[in-house]
């Protein structure tokens, strides 16, 4: 059971109030029409799947309904930091 801090509500809440939305910081290609099939496929489907630190998006679905980023360890499940959309993580893998 995760106990997640929502940076907008300023409170810790239980996991059930949130949904996970997968890998964070995926940038949509600036000019999609000129993408190769490989570039578009990579953007759409290929994901980092690390055993270790992972930057991911969560949404406070049953709360403020805002999206934010979480850096979490995928083995210990420890949440290292929570930061707002548009910000960069402070805790990064080596």
């Amino acid at each position: 059971m995760f106990y997640i801090y929502c940076p907008y509500c300023g409170e810790h809440r239980e996991e059930e109030e949130f949904h996970n939305h997968g890998q964070a910081h995926i940038e949509r290609p600036k000019d999609p029409d000129s993408c190769t099939d490989e570039e578009w496929g990579n953007y759409m489907f290929f994901r980092k799947n690390p055993k270790g630190l992972h930057h991911e998006i969560w949404v406070h679905a049953a709360g403020c309904r805002k999206f934010f980023n979480v850096t979490r360890h995928t083995v210990t499940y420890e949440i290292k930091e929570v930061y707002k959309m548009g910000e960069q993580p402070k805790v990064v893998a080596e």
Binding site: G22, G41, N42, F45, F46, R47, K48, N49, P50, K51, T74
Partner: peptide, 16 residues
């Protein structure tokens, strides 16, 4: 598989 693929130098469209 994702961990092993990373060792071989490519990504897979997988999430564990």
């Amino acid at each position: 598989s994702g961990v092993m693929a990373a060792k071989a130098g490519f990504e897979l469209p997988l999430e564990s």
